[in-house]
Amino acid sequence: MNEGHPIKAVLIAGPTASGKSALALELALSARGVVINADSMQVYRDLRIITARPTQDEEARVSHRLYGHVDAAVNFSAGAWVTDAAKILQEAEAEGRLPIFIGGTGLYFKALTAGLSVVPPIPAEIREDVRARLERNGVEALHAELAHRDPSSAERLNLRDRTRIARALEVVEATGRSLLDWHHEGQPPLLPKDSFRAVFLAPDREELYARIDARFDAMLGAGALDEVERLAARGLDPLLPAMKAHGVPALIRHLRGELSLEEAAKIGRADTRHYAKRQFTWFRHQLPDFVWVRPEEATDWLGAAVNAAREPG
């Protein structure tokens, strides 16, 4: 990336519990920035504690956008996030503020910097019918149906991946085309190459895993179980993204009497550690424009990058 270009935004990515929120807050305070959420679970208003959203005090110090603005009953998509992000970018530019995107959802960052495929909205009746068949017949039957109607998509999907199999089948039923076909036709990126500075926080793995475990326990102490109980009481579709946030399924099983709290917490901690591992792999292979730095070096790196990019000539 050419460091001499003026920048339109700063992107701060990294695995969960790597210190992104503190870094974004520090940069926003020093550079008159607005912090924009790029985490697919922190968009849900029902999940403040269990997703470790910024605190109300942090949100009061600088402008935070796209946090908790979606109801858990909504199957919020990357396309919907891009639409919202485009509006925030325009507002930030009009106000002379530096947009600071922060999160761990690789697809959001890829959509921001490389564009996104555009799949038409799926009619509710088709989505409901596919999910009813999934519950009635099982994931193997749905995968077999997908293999018949869209063999290319079926071949790429894990036989147990309920959500993606259902999604691929919904798309082919609604549009008559493979999801892979739609992926070849998409929106241009909101941030063209050389218009942003992007950093990926890469802490030591063992240190990160210890922080993840400690944070999960802290979230339980802060009321995460009560938050999940309120969510479970809504009786929402278990396939909705909010219902699969890390820790939520296991804590719901605890509330049903199927697991002890310690067993549920153990599962939640392990799921979060596994997710962090996948984040390292995904960003390394999918987003080469992100510069990897250790968290303790990120402040200096971002400060130098932003200052260099803002200097004329």
Rank of each mutant, 00 (worst) to 15 (best):
S30L: 10
K110P: 02
E140I: 02
I122A: 05
H254Y: 15
R177P: 03
R177S: 09
E93Y: 01
L169Q: 13
R136G: 07
A94N: 05
G268T: 06
R205M: 03
V139C: 10
S18L: 02
A31H: 14
A232D: 10
G115E: 07
L261F: 01
H69P: 03
Y67K: 08
L236P: 12
G33V: 07
L116A: 13
V10D: 10
T105F: 00
N2I: 02
T113V: 11
L25V: 09
E93F: 00
S260M: 03
A132T: 15
E173I: 07
L27I: 15
I212V: 15
E59C: 11
S195V: 09
L239G: 12
A265V: 03
E297I: 02
D57L: 10
A174K: 12
G68V: 05
Q286M: 08
P192H: 08
G235T: 03
P99E: 07
I100H: 06
R167F: 06
L107Q: 08
I88Y: 00
A24K: 08
I165G: 06
R284T: 09
T105R: 06
F200S: 14
H184C: 04
E207N: 05
G138K: 09
L159H: 14
G68M: 03
T113F: 03
A124T: 10
A52W: 01
H285S: 13
D217C: 06
Q56C: 00
V43K: 10
L225I: 12
A114V: 00
A250R: 07
A304D: 14
A52Q: 14
T51R: 07
S40M: 08
D213I: 04
E263L: 05
A85D: 04
E258C: 07
A80E: 07
R177V: 01
T105Y: 01
V172N: 07
L201Q: 06
S40P: 02
V172K: 12
D57C: 00
S117H: 15
W292I: 04
